[in-house]
Design a protein around this nucleic acid. Structure first.
Lengths: 327, 327
DNA sequence: GTCCTGCCTGTGATCGCTCACATCGTTCCC
DNA sequence: GGGAACGATGTGAGCGATCACAGGCAGGAC
């Protein structure tokens, strides 16, 4: 920086002002400094800047299951929003889902002096630990939240499950079977609750419920069991990957979709429209969720305190895997 | 740090030594310092450390199409390997694939003072720009490389395509149709070349070749055109997503897989085993690739110069979507 | 007893930037 | 025309770590 100052014939402070877009610099001075910066190929040292300002310009994000569609799209939204606000993002993927792993991840982020942390983990135990975290920086939750939570952004899972279930019942099915996610995940529970509630409201008995673990393999296992039950005419799988597994099991058992069995997924992964038949599913705006989370974090940093964001409503996308029952 | 030093009754330098695992500290002194650190909840300031050492402990990674399976798995491998070596990773996802976008991403990483950059972009123009990059830090290529490239890790795409094509021809098919990736991607080209070469070696004319763009939608479009041609009995899709689209088109046209048409994909995405029928495909060890890339980067930083890593051989996974031709 | 050698510990400068404050010209107003 | 007000620039301290170097205190050799 001293070199630039000398080349431009100004003081180091003026260079600093130019770098920080201060209005207190005459236009010709600014031009001279910028020219010097360009010819010298100067680039400001971030460590020194951080040391002096005590701000890192960095947000942290902790996400589970980054290999899955949903979480990775949330991450994309977070990164985009952060960049737009001149922040960088450090992403910590959780490979195992213990509270300990969560704490290690947060620790790692703190070691990078992040100014705020976005936690996108819907596993109950881990999330409770996250809630209990007393960090020196704001923590924004971006999954497994409920309406009215402070510093939390979320999608209304309960509503999404209602939409899916109502769609099937409205088509004339008497009840809907469920392939749930692991119930120690809050979102799995919320989706199951929505499914159950609709049945209750209509005075119906909810169909068989089988547990899955989000994976296609678990959906396949559940599908094999559902396929042998002729009573089952409608299935709601709590995510698209499990729906894929169910679909395969139904095909193998010779049960036609949607003629004999209707199927709804959840997430609207890119592949959903290209399954055979194209999968009716519930679309969530993951990247919007990420943006909202960053927005909340930045507002908290701006001293606005713990703000609240409304839950986003997911949208049912009707494709070819659902139809009225045959009789 | 001064507080810790005072609490432990030592100088700031001794605290620093403890923090850096220097052997030049007596055990009881070390214990005293560590106790002080624990009670005060002290955590060392990274910015100051970076400023003094002139090392950031951070690697950068540029990846295209992070939403896809392959690239995101490579990223996982990079992050794991980096963490194991006490490095943090900054990940830049490219949304558009222009050389300009690449340069912006690299610039952003440099702004975070990364010590090395891993570039996982196989788009020809962008990659050439990456090769031409004269950065003050080592650049490791992790896609679109060829045998013998310096500072490059890769999977042998040509070989993978050969395996897929040979499998189909060995089953008795007279020729294999291709749904390629966009040919300005090096890997798309390499896969096409492998497919073509096998035909040449056997004196066969390569089947119809249709262009795709990696997406399921493009696979579907290609599949519709292939489905009407009764001559086509075997299809090689250059990735699993396009294979999914082809599969849907074939189903819709009433052409049975594998009885009438055999299909092979590429990548072995988690869902591949749960398509109907389960997809024969080529598995790549993406995360190993990421680890190798980091290894090369760290060796370059260690002053070993530009090392070479052998191309990894992908593996054909035979499932249910391939069979001998019916007649 | 002296000196040397080896461990362990302390001292002060330094990294590159921003912050608070001082300074120097202008302009503008009464 | 004097002084207030303001705009543009410069000066020096300080952020919190590490590095190079300078001791101090043992034990062993002579």
């Amino acid at each position: 920086m001293a070199d630039v100052a000398q080349a431009a014939g100004v003081s180091h402070q003026t260079v600093s002002r130019v770098l920080n877009d201060s209005p207190l610099v005459r236009d010709d001075t600014r031009a001279r400094v910028q020219a010097a910066i360009a010819t010298l190929g100067y680039r400001r040292n971030n460590a020194a800047r951080q040391l002096a300002t005590n701000r890192s310009g960095r947000l942290g994000m902790v996400a589970a299951h980054l290999a899955y569609h949903g979480p990775s799209m949330v991450a994309v939204g977070v990164v985009d929003a952060a960049h737009a606000a001149d922040y960088e993002v450090s992403l910590e993927g959780l490979t195992e889902l213990t509270p300990d792993a969560l704490e290690r991840a947060v620790d790692r982020l703190l070691g990078q002096s992040v100014e705020a942390v976005v936690v996108a983990v819907a596993h109950r135990a881990a999330l409770e630990r996250a809630r209990a975290l007393r960090l020196p920086v704001p923590v924004v939750l971006a999954q497994g939240v409920t309406e009215g939570d402070r510093l939390a952004a979320g999608i209304d899972q309960h509503l999404g499950a209602r939409r899916a279930t109502e769609h099937l019942l409205d088509l004339g099915h008497r009840r809907v079977a469920l392939v749930s996610g692991p119930l120690d995940w809050i979102e799995a529970e919320q989706r199951r609750d929505g499914w159950q509630r609709v049945h209750e409201e209509r005075g119906l008995l909810p169909g068989p419920a089988l547990p899955g673990d989000w994976s296609a393999a678990s959906g396949y296992a559940a599908g094999r069991r559902l396929a042998v039950d002729r009573e089952v005419t409608a299935v709601f799988a709590a995510n698209d990957a499990m729906a894929l597994g169910v679909l395969k099991a139904l095909h193998e058992a010779g049960r036609r979709v949607p003629e004999e069995v209707s199927l709804v997924g959840f997430d609207d992964e890119p592949s959903a429209a290209f399954l055979w038949p194209a999968l009716t599913t519930v679309a969530q705006e993951f990247s919007a969720l990420g943006r909202t989370a960053v927005d909340l974090a930045l507002r908290a940093l701006g001293g606005e305190g713990a703000a609240t964001a409304p839950l986003v409503a997911p949208v049912l996308v009707v494709r070819d895997s659902t139809a009225p029952p045959s009789r």
